[in-house]
Design a protein around this nucleic acid. Sequence first.
RNA 1: GCCGCAGUGGCGGAAUGGCAGACGCAGCAGACUCAAAAUCUGCCGAGGGCAACUUCGUGCGGGUUCAAGUCCCGCCUGCGGCACCA
Length: 804
Amino acid sequence: MGAVYSPKDMEQKWQKIWDEEEAFKVGEDYSKPKYYALVEFPYPSGQGLHVGHPRPYTALDIISRKRRMQGYNVLFPMGWDAFGLPTENYAIKNHIHPKIVTENNVAHFKSQLKSLGYSFDWNREVNTTDPEYYKWTQWIFLKLFKKGLAYKTQMPINWCTSCKVGLANEEVVNGVCERCGGEVVRRVKSQWMLKITEYADKLLEGLDHVDYIEKVKVSQKNWIGRSVGAEVDFRLDGKDDTLRIFTTRPDTLFGATYMVISPEHPFIEKYKEEITNYDEVAAYREQAARKSDFERTELAKEKTGVVMGGISAVNPVNGNKIPVWISDYVLMTYGTGAIMAVPAHDERDWEFAKKFGLPIVEVVAGGQVEEAAFTDVASGKLVNSGFLDGLEVKDAKEKIISWLSEKGIGKQKVNYKLRDWVFSRQRYWGEPIPIVHCEKCGYVPLPESELPLMLPEVDSYMPTDNGESPLAAMTDWLNTTCPCCGGPAKRESDTMPQWAGSSWYFLRYIDPKNDEAFAGGEALKYWLPVDWYNGGMEHTTLHLLYSRFWHKFLYDEGLVPTEEPYQKRTSHGMILGENGEKMSKSRGNVVNPDDIVNEFGSDTLRTYEMFIGAFELSAAWSQEGVKGCRRFLDRVWKLQDMLTEGDLYSAALETKLHQTIKKVSGDFEALKFNTAIAAMMSLVNEFYKAGSVTKAEFRTLVLLLSPVAPHICEELWQLAGGAGRVYQQSWPEYDEAKTVEDEVEIAVQINGKVKATVKIAAQDSQEEARAKVMAEPAVAGLLSGRSIVKEIFVKGRIYNIVVK
RNA sequence: GCCGCAGUGGCGGAAUGGCAGACGCAGCAGACUCAAAAUCUGCCGAGGGCAACUUCGUGCGGGUUCAAGUCCCGCCUGCGGCACCA
């Protein structure tokens, strides 16, 4: 009789053994096939690990363990994305330096992760706040700067009034700060920007060559928002000046009955003297500027606007004089900040025209333009459009664009929704931007030899109300000399956003201790690209897009060997509380993984998190479900009492074993961990039914289960007389021919309804099957007196007889 | 509004167009026990029937097919993302 299954001591024992044996140390033998499995490194928050964390980690730990057993050299690393606001805020509140807070949180996270038995190679741990790490973050920034991809500009930014920090567009969710939910207003500030827009096409095009789940590709495509249209110049009536607009519907040019410019458009100032209702215009502009983005979108239902009195434009195709309006439904940040309005064929323009009584002229037939805008481009021909009449939309577009080009008043143009990345943060706990501002020389990059530019060690790092970084007050650090002319200069006081360090961390794992380069060329060549990257959907348009941008830049610089960083990207669903709501302290439905490990063991937690449901969907926690998984492991444990000597599969179990190996192997690859575990449960049930299990049969189960529940499997491997360790074994193989039952029970249908079942040989032909089916008394009875119209036989599955 | 995903027993969820409900949870009955827990065995979609059986069942309405949870058309509901991007 074996001992009772008590995971606690046993799991610690094996974790220690793995450590001592350096079981998961990444090999340096570059002649072996490699596999790079990556999970998003966590932000080490004060709350510690959440039960959501182990879901993706366990999934790729399973893949990594399986790959090692398949003979791959596996890189499965872990690290810390440790710069950021929560740490800084906690530090301020509790008067502990963020560096200390980070150290404590990392230690806590690490011990929690270790207790879960992940096969990370901890020799390769990285930390974005380590100067030896951020030295290279700064180094990459300098490369971007030298290429003109980092620039400082005065621009309205999203300002979180609560965090007192500027945010990228991606960080503003429903008009509020993604992190704290605080109000976001627009504020003009001088900011460092990264020209991600320069890579818009490459980022888009690259998606065709990677294996990302579809929804990730779609989200990135939408976010980049490429649209092909035309830029057209409209002459201002009586002036030697033109107003340039962007449109995706140049075919509707004859239907343009007015124009609209954004309240921020420079023409308002330019024609200040001539606008007859300037006071009204200025008031409208004021009002628009005061609105936060949130208010702008909230009020979007009702269009507002004001006409620019005394100014009119000329429609280039028909010479009609048309008015120019100002409205905040036109954004200065997209296209040219001005549009031609075609109310008959654009919903926004239609709404605006209806409200202000502007003319609606149909130029594509097919709708009722007085009732609603007709926006269908697939049907309908051009009307009221001179030389375009009778053409289809597609052809009209082509014709008008070439006409405009010939006349020199327009051309084809591609626009993107993607905006440049606001790269400045006015906070302490981030990478200092390695730039010096000199009155004479402008913005001067720090020489590489001066990297890392360390954060000053100071006591006060409070955010300021005036929007300046706390670093701006640290004059000893701030004041320096210009690397260019040697004169007095000031350091940049803004720091980088949290997304900086995570934009290249997967490269540092490849060669984490290199002090000559961010990573060595040979190592990069061997390990890139990441073979499988799993992470949250919430990072699709942030981290995932940013890191692809940096990687593509590094590729263009000849610094990395692949165009894309990640070959495959998958995403996991959230773990919800027992009540089906998102886990949160305030809802009181938070489950702490430590409690589960203590009560049931980490193997149970791992198994449960994989069994809980489809990996990519969210799933509600169930304490009863955890117990079920523990019960399964108990049953596996107790199989040791049923072992018989034997190096072969018994006849009764052979087919089931081959089927299970096939099922589990395939399901792991497809992220169908729930059905893989179900298959193993089913195998265990068969073992119990059989009453005894040969060691060979048992070892196969142990090997299959080991990526999911590695501790119990090491123990059982040893008990079952296995040589070495489970992690050193080869992944079990199956024989396709042996996955098929010799005899199967098939359903016999009459007119599609199951009427009987018949046992036949799996390989039976239709004739052989027919004989057995017709011999079945129930079938014979049902067929008497009816004529057979058709018979359908699906091998090993079904026999359907259609009768009249 | 647009784009994705989902809707199956009391619950979590399975099902290359081929016997719907695998596997697990909960429940019921039995075994073991003085008893309980644990464990083991059996049952477990709904209606009808003593029973052999039988009818109905995968959000709703149509369709294709010998055969539909699965494919097509039209809806409904929930979740996630984007959203005045011209």
